[in-house]
Design a protein around this nucleic acid. Structure first.
Lengths: 333, 333
DNA sequence: ACTAGCCCTGTAATCGATATCAGAGTGCGC
DNA sequence: GCGCACTCTGATATCGATTACAGGGCTAGT
C-alpha cells in the first residue's frame, strides 16, 4: 500500500503538508495543493483509516448491535440507522446477536475495542452487565426498542399501549372470551410490556387471560409454532391468538395451517409488527404496526446528538392497530 | 481509556511483557503472567484494536457489501457469512448498497480504508470500476451471487438453469402459451442470466417469449408491481407471470390483488427465491429456491481460504424448483 | 571458578496518520 | 534599510499497540 510518505516524496513536500491538503486546512498554497492532489491521484493513495483514527481518537463509525438480523423488523431498523448515519458522514458496523446474550456481549466488546464513536444496542435480554463496560469506556450509548434494568441512557422505542388496548377492545367486542397470547421472552422488556399491557386491557374488560392461554416464545418462528400447537391442543383452546412478534406470528400461522385450522373461522389471529405480506394472506392479518424506519432514524439521531455533547430526550413513537380481518371482525364485530 | 502502559505500570512490568501475556507468548513466567492478568482485570483494560491492527496489518475483519439489506435473500446471506466468519475468529462489517452502484463504491472504499482483511461483494450493477481499486489495495476479493464483467476472482453463486428449465417445462405442459417475465435489471448478471436461461428454455419448447411479455424491474417491490400492471393491461395479457426475485414477486402479488385478479385462476405466478410466507398464501406460491445459507457460508469460506493464501475454486450451488400450486399445476398439469 | 547458554525481561523502533512548534521566506511600514 | 508580522512549510512528538534486539540472572559443564 502507498502511504502518506510516498505521496509526500512524490510531490516533493512533507507528510505534514499532505495531511493539511487532505484535511482541507487553510495553509497550503494553491500550487502545492495541486501538486499534492496530483501525486495522490497518480499513486492512487488512500489514507489509512486505522492510523488516522488512532491519532484523532475518532472513527466516524457507529456500532449497531441488533437482536436478530433475519427478523425483518430489525433489518429495516438497521437500514434506517445506516441511512441516517451516512447522511451525517458516519459509517455503521452491524453486529448480529441472534437473540443471544453472550453473543451480544461479544459484539459490544468488539465494537468498543474498535473504538466506535457511539453504540446503538437492541438488548437481547435483560442482562445489563455490558452497560457498565460501555460507560467505563466512555462511549455514548443509546438503546433501541428494548430497555434493560438500570441503564441510564437515552432510549428510542415504540409504545404499543394504545394499540394493544384497541386490539383487546375489538377482540372482546367481537365476542372472544378465550384469548391466547404468544408472548415474547419474559427476560426482554418488550416481551414483558406487551403482555402486561394487553393483559391489563383484557382484564379491564372483564376477560382476564387464563394462565394456560399465555405461552412465552423467544421472538422466533419455531417458538411461535410450538406455542400455537400447545394452546390449540388444550381442551378449551383460545378462539383467537395474539402473537407478540412477526416471526412468532409466522410460526403460529404455519402451525395452524398444518393442523388444518382455518383463520378466522376456527381461530382468529393478530400479530405484533406489520409485514408487507400480511395483507396478502387470506384472510389478511390484523396487526399492530411499529414505525420501524422512524425508530431507526431517531435512534441514529439521538446517538449523533449524544456524540455531539447534547442531551437527547427519550423518544417514544406510537405503534398502531391495523384491522384487516384475521380476527373475524367482519363476522362478529 | 486505560492503555497498555497503565497496565504495565500497575503490574510493575514493561509494555512488552503485557503484550506477551496478551498474545500468549511463551516467554513470561507464570508469576508475572498472573500479575499482569490481575492488573488487566483490576483496571478493566481492553486492547485498542486500532493500534493493534495498525501494527500487525491485520484486522480480523471481513467486509461484506450487500445489494440490499432489506431483501430477505441478502439478509439471510449476511447472517450466514457472519456466522461462518465468527467461527473462524473474524468479524464482519456489513455495508448496504441499496441496489445503488455509487453507494456500493463508497462502501468498498470505506472498507478498504479500514483495512479489512478481505472483501465479499454482491455487485449492485455491472459497473466493475471498483474491482481495480480492490486489487490495487491487494485485498482478497470474492464475489457473491452476481458477477461483474472482467473480474478475476472467485465467485459463489446459485445455478438456476435446471430449475428454470423445469419451470418452463411445467408451465408449457400446463398449457400456458403467453408467459410473462418480470426480469431483473439488465445490468446485473443474475438479471440477465435468469431471463436468458428461462427464455432459452421456453423457446426450446416452441413457445418463445413475446417482447411485450418481458419487463425489466430493479429487484425491488414497486418495480414488480409496475411490471405486473403493465403486462396485465395488455390486450393479450400473460396467463402466467414469472418474477425473477422475491421482492418483485411480492410487488406483483400486491398488484394482482389490487386488480382483483385471482391466482391461479386468472393468471399464474412463480417467483425466484423462496420465502417462509410463500407456502402460506392461497394458493401457495411455486418458487425457485436458492440455498442462501450455503451461499453465505461458502462465500465466507472461500474468502478465508483466499486470505490464507489458498486458491479456492468457484462455487456453484443448485437452485431448485418447488411446485406449490400458484401456476395452476393442479388444474392443468 | 569461569564461561557458555538459556530464560526472562526491558528498551526502543515501528505501523501511518495528525498536530504542535519552530523556522524560512515575503511584504510592508517607517 | 531594518524589523515586524504574516504565510507557508518541515521536523518531530504522539496515538497504543507489537517485536527485534540487547542484556541481566541462573544453571550447568569443565
Amino acid at each position: 500500500m502507498t502511504t502518506m510518505k510516498d505521496v509526500a516524496q512524490h510531490a516533493g513536500v512533507s507528510t505534514a503538508t499532505v495531511s493539511r491538503v487532505l484535511n482541507g486546512h487553510a495553509a497550503p498554497t494553491e500550487e502545492t495543493r495541486a501538486r499534492v492532489l496530483a501525486a495522490i491521484a497518480e499513486l492512487g493513495y488512500r489514507p489509512n483509516a486505522l492510523a488516522r483514527s488512532l491519532r484523532t481518537t475518532s472513527t466516524k463509525t457507529l456500532g449497531l448491535v441488533i437482536s436478530d438480523l433475519v427478523n425483518p423488523f430489525f433489518a429495516e431498523i438497521a437500514r434506517a440507522v445506516e441511512e441516517e448515519a451516512r447522511a451525517h458522514g458516519y459509517c455503521v458496523v452491524v453486529g448480529n446477536a441472534d437473540e443471544n446474550a453472550e453473543q451480544q456481549i461479544t459484539y459490544v466488546r468488539t465494537l468498543l475495542d474498535r473504538r466506535v464513536d457511539g453504540l446503538l444496542v437492541c438488548p437481547a435480554t435483560d442482562d445489563a452487565s455490558w452497560v457498565g463496560e460501555v460507560v467505563a469506556a466512555g462511549v455514548p450509548l443509546v438503546l433501541l426498542d428494548r430497555t434493560v434494568p438500570g441503564a441510564d441512557c437515552p432510549i428510542v422505542r415504540a409504545d404499543g399501549g394504545e394499540a394493544l388496548t384497541d386490539l383487546a377492545d375489538r377482540l372482546v367486542r367481537a365476542g372472544h372470551r378465550r384469548i391466547g397470547v404468544i408472548a415474547g421472552p419474559a427476560d426482554t422488556s418488550t416481551g414483558r410490556e406487551r403482555l402486561e399491557l394487553f393483559s391489563a386491557a383484557v382484564t379491564g374488560l372483564g376477560q382476564p387471560l387464563r394462565p394456560e392461554h399465555v405461552v412465552h416464545g423467544d421472538f422466533r418462528r419455531e417458538s411461535g409454532a410450538r406455542a400455537a400447537a400447545a394452546m390449540m391442543a388444550l381442551p378449551q383452546p383460545p378462539t383467537v391468538l395474539v402473537a407478540m412478534d412477526n416471526l412468532m406470528g409466522l410460526g403460529a400461522l404455519e402451525e395452524l395451517r398444518r393442523r388444518g385450522v382455518v383463520v378466522p373461522r376456527d381461530v382468529g389471529l393478530a400479530v405484533y409488527d406489520d409485514q408487507p405480506w400480511f395483507p396478502l394472506l387470506d384472510p389478511p392479518i390484523t396487526v399492530i404496526a411499529q414505525p420501524t424506519v422512524e425508530m431507526g432514524r431517531e435512534a441514529a439521531r439521538s446517538l449523533l446528538a449524544l456524540i455531539a455533547g447534547e442531551q437527547p430526550a427519550d423518544v417514544r413513537l406510537n405503534a398502531r392497530l391495523i384491522v384487516r380481518g384475521s380476527c373475524g371482525e367482519g363476522d362478529r364485530g
